[in-house]
Design a protein around this nucleic acid. Structure first.
Lengths: 334, 334
DNA sequence: TAGTATTTTGGAATCGATTCCATAAGGGGT
DNA sequence: ACCCCTTATGGAATCGATTCCAAAATACTA
């Protein structure tokens, strides 16, 4: 493997000059530049990025930490982020915490030890960890979606509250009076924000009685479980359900369909995220869309900005959700 | 940021000794080990992995290159790979080529310049590139799914031919005689292998007449396009279609459903991959499953084996596909 | 044309670890 | 008590680039 010294020798200049050439600090038309270019081509030289990074203290790499890539929400996000950052020559480590908050500090530390220039972090908890706190002092750590206490400034998220508010209002306008909210894990800020949207919409119409909130997880299984119970006591059940996310909604959707319950006539369902699947099931899912593309774009731009020497603005960024009305919602059964 | 020298000074030993301690070459119960441990904790020392890697010529990182993360097939694969490798302390770069074969050599080179210990590469082409050839000489490059000419030994893939053979046979056994095969891009080996399975099954029954093969891409759009044409001449069309992958099948599925065609009564559909969505659409999709988990496991294990000093065995690995019969297939319309 | 300012250039130091090699210390055997 | 063998330890070299700084070359000004 040719090194910069080999190139320097071959071109009859010093390492320093070659380094300058590589970093565009050398007049390209100069005689030396020509010789260096020829030497590089001849020796098939490619710089060792480890060496470069060690000295220059910048790696042009970042880490993306998500709970679980098998939830389609995250690959969609990851795809948008990777595509954007690649345009800026930034490469991406990806890691899954397995939704286990205890593993996250170790992961953060490991990537930091590789000297990534920044991180994009979807936490499985809202509890801030000392490791995170420490790392965030020296590199930008953007948090997506879930807001970690004390880091709201670095958070980029959708307006969870508004999204659920809109969805709830939409159901109420259709005439629903008995609505269940299938929330995510109780301790997450996403859960709490979304819940607030639900409650606000109900409060506006003084309708807090015939509704209920059930905590669960962001999985299909959670939806299935609830649907099982719903089936046991059909007539007394709600006429609509708003789910923590699309996966939960799909769990409900599938279980009810398997049991011959007609959606939306008997039960209206609304999800959150608008993952790929949601438009494909039948009836297709009414849901609150998270603007993935915009996420990827905003996140990458803010990160690139910082990498180019800018500072992280100290304001949270809150994107607008959009209620996508499809086939899984209708006026309530009589 | 504390360095190894700081630890050495604090513990009153040399850098070398600290390094040995870090690499488990020091008696843990020794007096010095105790002092070093204390110094590390006190200074909150974490090794700079760039420096370590530069010297030791191993990074404990690999790159995964896929065409496109928005095709659910790849995140599923990536998830399995990342999870397994994380257990071995190996971290993962991920990159998308955007299905553009011209970008791949650059990507390969970029990751190589970071001195990844290996790569997992799903090529968008079967044409081998000189860059790939060069890199594969010094680090293991495992190819998944698509087989690059000259690299069959490093390929891990499902038995494409057998999968489609089984699916075709299944349709013929149901009584279908007019079957269309919606193939992927013509130049890919996956396409050709799968096609061979189709043709073998037909040939066995001397049924090559009333069937046809159409080349396209691995996208929903390709399925949609074909379905449009199918709709224009319903009665003359085939009674069953085997699709290049699930996305294509879903494109067909959706378009026909939107137009009131009943699946499977009027047209049977079979996909390939068994992505998450396929079990959720209605009617659910009969498909040829790729064993994702096994992929992740096998790939990671082979890679880890090499990283631990083993050599890449020189035999391709071919996994067994499984025909998952669901609701999108039935005997043909009369 | 001399003198100063600016740009080019390269030698040496540096980033932070591991590895090489020589030396010191400990352990057994006679 | 002596010698040999093994183990423990640290100083110096090394990985391959960038960056610092001083010297050389060039350009500019009066």
């Amino acid at each position: 493997m040719a090194t910069i010294s080999d190139v320097a020798r071959e071109a009859g200049v010093s390492r320093t000059t070659v380094s300058r050439y590589l970093n565009g600090q050398l007049n390209d038309s100069s005689d030396k530049a020509q010789r260096i270019a020829r030497a590089i081509a001849e020796l098939r030289y490619h710089p060792n990025l480890l060496a470069r990074s060690l000295r220059s203290a910048t790696t042009r790499s970042i880490a993306v930490i998500v709970p679980d890539l098998s939830n389609p929400f995250y690959p969609t996000l990851l795809s948008a982020i990777e595509a954007r950052l690649a345009q800026h020559g930034v490469q991406v480590f990806v890691g899954q915490s397995g939704d286990d908050a205890r593993r996250e500090p170790t992961m953060l530390q490991d990537y930091y030890n590789r000297r990534v220039d920044g991180m994009i972090y979807v936490s499985a908890t809202s509890e801030p960890d000392p490791v995170l706190r420490q790392i965030a002092k020296s590199i930008p750590v953007l948090m997506l979606d879930e807001q970690v206490t004390g880091f709201s400034d670095a958070t980029i998220r959708v307006d969870h509250e508004r999204g659920v508010y809109q969805a709830t209002k939409y159901l109420l306008d259709l005439g629903h009076r008995h609505v269940t909210y299938l929330a995510g894990p109780r301790h997450l800020t996403t859960t709490q924000l979304r819940l607030r949207g639900f409650e606000t919409a109900l409060a506006e119409r003084s309708l807090t009685d015939a509704t209920e909130v059930i905590y669960g997880s962001y999985t299909m299984e959670a939806g299935r479980l609830w649907a099982q119970r719903f089936l046991e006591n059909l007539e007394r059940g709600p006429t609509a359900v708003i789910c923590a996310n699309d996966l939960v909604a799909l769990g409900v959707h599938r279980t009810l369909t398997e049991n011959g319950i007609v959606i939306p006539n008997f039960l209206s369902i609304i999800g959150f995220d608008d993952i790929f699947v949601s438009s494909l099931v039948s009836p297709s899912l009414t849901t609150i869309r998270q603007p993935f593309e915009q996420f990827g774009q905003v996140v990458s731009e803010r990160l690139v900005e910082v990498l180019h020497g800018g500072t992280l603005r100290d304001s949270p960024m809150i994107l607008a959700p959009e209620l996508i009305v499809r086939e899984s919602t209708s006026p309530p059964r009589p």
